[in-house]
Write a protein that binds this DNA or RNA. Structure first.
Lengths: 224, 224
DNA sequence: GTCTGTGAAGCTCTTCACAGCG
DNA sequence: CGCTGTGAAGAGCTTCACAGAC
């Protein structure tokens, strides 16, 4: 029986292995979202109780999540809002703006282009790609639309490591392979189709219909 | 929160409590997505390891997920694709089209309106609501846009139990409260803000920026 | 032989509960 | 006191591995 606890406490080091849970990471961005609001309201310090209830988790979980990265808190005053936001940004890597590429300019792609929420959270859609020759070369929401032939060049020039996939499912895997080879390390995939990547890449899927189906199920079973 | 131990085997019965894990439910819709493709390709039967590899899970997990609802398989030929799709639809409650309301006609709302993927999976956006008087009464992608004053009436008339939230964050909680009181039982929330509901309602959050932040973190730590 | 369905083990995440501190 | 940070317990999810069916 190996019950090793040798891990942990890899905190702010280069982290080859992943000592911190993905679910924690997911919550960190929710914490940061709330911290941004608190900064806006000029709140300086906050206790785990209060912040937890604002984001909808238990105080214990909030403290546990933060503890994965070391000590944040001050027992008397609580957590320093400004400091915590800064630290979380550094952990997430959004303290400096990250260039992001968008693939696909259908309805969803255009909506994402117009969405202002990325800039606020440290992301910048710097390049847009489309297969449709009609759209190539035109400008959408201030960004020029490239053809896929320029993928490698633009990814390299702009140092793009994150891509949003909003294309049709045809040719998606080939596109991902090319992007990964060109240096993209993370994909936010809106296409309801499984994509595979080399191990150094990460994929997050957002399948809107699947979420609706889940809700359909829950709405019928939750004391219906 | 209740601490229920009501245990298993409530399978296809009325299901008051929730004997089946939420993560399983999430995967069920992914299975169904893939089954739809298989039907399209005229595949009649499939084995767990094949289907599992198509959706990106382990065969054991696929079998375990299905087993939560009883027996699906035929040892020799594998699972009947058509049957399984039908059964999953029934379980999810999408065997008959579900009417869905959309709140908010910003960029994201309009993109969702134009998105064809809902119909395919058994959902129908039957009503659209906006606060902006400019948009009320106009028709968007074939749907007339209502003002919020008609919320209760339209929800009741159309029997709407699922709502998509794509508004701004101001007044969101009040809107949810009204919708819940009017009979809505499930919310797909794209607004990056915590909403609370009565216990008979379900909420699924989709925070696109949070997902990007998670990817930002992963792309740096995954053998960067 | 190959497959499904499933106890049992293993693993991960969450919650409890308390030491330590100001 | 009331708070944070954290071992330890608990709950939940996944994988293993095999019995039973064909």
């Amino acid at each position: 029986m190996s019950k090793k606890r040798v891990k942990d406490l890899e905190s702010e080091r280069t982290g080859q292995t992943r000592p911190v849970s993905r679910l924690t990471i997911e919550r960190l961005s929710v914490y940061r979202r709330t911290l941004k609001e608190l900064i806006h309201e000029d709140v300086k310090f906050i206790h785990s109780h209060q912040l937890a209830s604002l984001v909808g988790v238990t105080p214990a979980q909030l403290r546990r999540d933060l503890a994965s990265f070391g000590s944040f808190g001050n027992v008397v005053k609580g957590y320093n809002v400004q400091d915590m936001d800064r630290t979380l940004s550094e952990i997430m890597g959004t303290d400096i703006p990250q260039p992001v590429a968008l693939f696909g300019l259908g309805d969803l792609g255009r909506a994402l282009l117009s969405y202002g929420g990325f800039q606020e959270r440290g992301f910048s859609l710097v390049a847009v790609f489309e297969k449709d020759p009609e759209k190539i070369g035109r400008v959408f929401a201030g960004r020029r639309c490239y053809g896929l032939d320029l993928l490698e060049q633009v990814v390299a020039d702009r140092g793009i490591r994150i891509a949003i996939l909003a294309t049709t499912s045809e040719g998606l895997q080939a596109l991902v392979d090319r992007a990964a080879a060109a240096g993209v390390r993370a994909f936010l995939n809106f296409v309801p189709k499984l994509v595979t990547t080399p191990p150094q890449c990460a994929v997050e899927d957002i399948d809107i219909s699947s979420r609706l189906e889940k809700l359909s199920f829950l709405s019928r079973t939750q004391s219906g």
